[in-house]
């Protein structure tokens, strides 16, 4: 087996474009995912997330640009790419006549490696009955079955496309804990996750780095800690209404003598200005990744 250099990227997307008729679903997207990282791929519905993922899996062919997975072109080396990754889509479907056991045996038959201990652990954890027919499973149980099928081959890359949407909170929690525990702990340097979601707060602790995609383009790529350091919300109240110079702020909401200010990497300068006017109250907090995503609309306008 050729062991990857941990510095070489697991996913490399360069200037990717894919159209449906006249619609540019993905339009010049570039991003890089390094080994051992958990990479978040955030965007609104229709932003181009699923189209991008389908290009990674050779389920769609790019019109321009390209993708490389493990340094390989999925169009030319489809099998070599797919045997090293696993994919959980938002809508999972199995052959309805197969049981849980039969489905896992069927999935295992395509794989070189299948960890039976993890399979047994997860079946127990999710309380799935191996003899249950897959057509009789709930949506949550189908997703759990898909996750078992994705983790047991111990792939180097786990691609998750909106994996937890439509699931109840407990199943979502278990899903994320399983990705952290059963998947990530295996061989930490070689366990890479690429997750597209808009339930960002649930994945917040897992995300090392992320890209926000908007209209098929990369709006923002940052490391999670750096992003939380850069985007801050300042709440301030003065004894009376004031004229302030807040031209550097990303956004200012004002209600009389109270203000809420969004800072984009310049909170220190803004705080100096605010403090010079003797505020009654002054609080600063980082934006969560979800709030950064919501603020990205403002960011887009600020960039334009």
């Amino acid at each position: 087996m050729n062991r990857m250099n941990t510095d070489s990227p697991i996913i490399e997307i360069q200037n990717l474009s894919r159209r449906y008729g006249k619609l540019d679903a993905v339009n010049g997207l570039s991003l890089t995912v390094r080994a051992g990282k958990c990479y978040g791929f955030f965007g609104r519905n229709g932003a181009g997330k699923t189209t991008t993922i389908k290009c990674l899996l050779n389920l769609l062919r790019p019109d321009f640009g390209g993708v490389r997975v493990f340094g390989l072109d999925p169009r030319k080396n489809e099998v070599a790419v797919k045997e090293r990754l696993a994919y959980v889509p938002d809508q999972v479907a199995f052959y309805p006549w197969m049981t849980v056991r039969g489905t896992l045996e069927y999935l295992a038959s395509f794989r070189k490696n299948w960890n039976g201990d993890i399979e047994a652990d997860l079946l127990k954890r999710f309380q799935l009955d191996p003899n249950q027919k897959s057509s009789h499973l709930s949506k949550g149980q189908r997703t759990q079955l898909a996750l078992i099928g994705a983790i047991c081959p111990e792939p180097e890359l786990l691609v998750l496309d909106e994996p937890t949407s439509g699931l109840d909170p407990i199943v979502r929690r278990e899903f994320i804990e399983t990705v952290i525990g059963a998947y990530q702990s295996g061989d930490p340097g070689r366990r890479t996750v690429f997750v597209s979601t808009h339930l960002i707060s649930e994945f917040e602790g897992l995300i090392d780095e992320f890209t926000i995609i908007e209209s098929g383009q990369n709006l923002l790529t940052m490391e999670a800690d750096a992003a939380r350091d850069r985007f801050k919300k300042i709440n301030v109240r003065f004894p009376q209404e004031l004229r302030l110079n807040l031209s550097g702020a990303l956004n200012v909401k004002r209600n009389g003598r109270e203000l809420e200010i969004l800072a984009n990497g310049n909170s220190e300068a803004l705080l100096v200005e605010l403090k010079s006017h003797q505020p009654e109250e002054l609080r600063t907090e980082s934006l969560s990744l979800e709030e950064i995503f919501v603020a990205s609309d403002i960011l887009k306008k600020a960039k334009a």
């Binding site: 929690r173 994320i176 804990e177 952290i180 525990g181 990530q184 649930e202 602790g205 897992l206």
Partner: peptide, 10 residues
């Protein structure tokens, strides 16, 4: 990591 739901690497 599982309990806090943060990345194992963290």
């Amino acid at each position: 990591a599982e309990e806090l739901r943060v990345n194992r690497n963290t």
